[in-house]
Amino acid sequence: MARRAHSSTHPAWFAAALVVVLLFAGGGYLIYSQLSDPFRTFSPLPVEAYLQNANSLRGNRYRVDVTVANQLGWTPQKGRLYSMDLDGSDDVLPLLIPAELNSINLQKGQRFTIEVEVIDRGILEVKRLRKA
């Protein structure tokens, strides 16, 4: 029997395989991250429309990325009213954090991704939030 000649794996194949693995890993992560974002189904708040006529958006839910600015007031029953700087803009939004979310600590400068609903009088009520 003839001995077949011994053949070695070319290193390029290893590099390609690594790339593929990385691509899969990245894609997977991307997919994972997309799928794991709880606010991925909410569209961002149409700020211009909100600033012109908030009542027209009443009942809608949006996602906003904001930074905590100031607490404007609070009541045990209704919760806390904050002013939050809209990321990537000079606009400032008033957000009402209901009493149910009183357990969440908010500090000035913290960035959050928040699910909001436009309620009566055009107030943005926080439904869910998470630190960005």
């Binding site: 607490q71 404007l72 609070w74 500090q107 000035k108 009088r121």
Partner: peptide, 20 residues
């Protein structure tokens, strides 16, 4: 204006001090 509207939204607000 802010105080006026906060008062309107939170009539029984116990504090309206800013969070700094």
């Amino acid at each position: 204006g802010i105080e006026r509207l906060v008062e309107e939204l939170l009539p029984d607000a116990q504090a309206s001090t800013a969070v700094h």
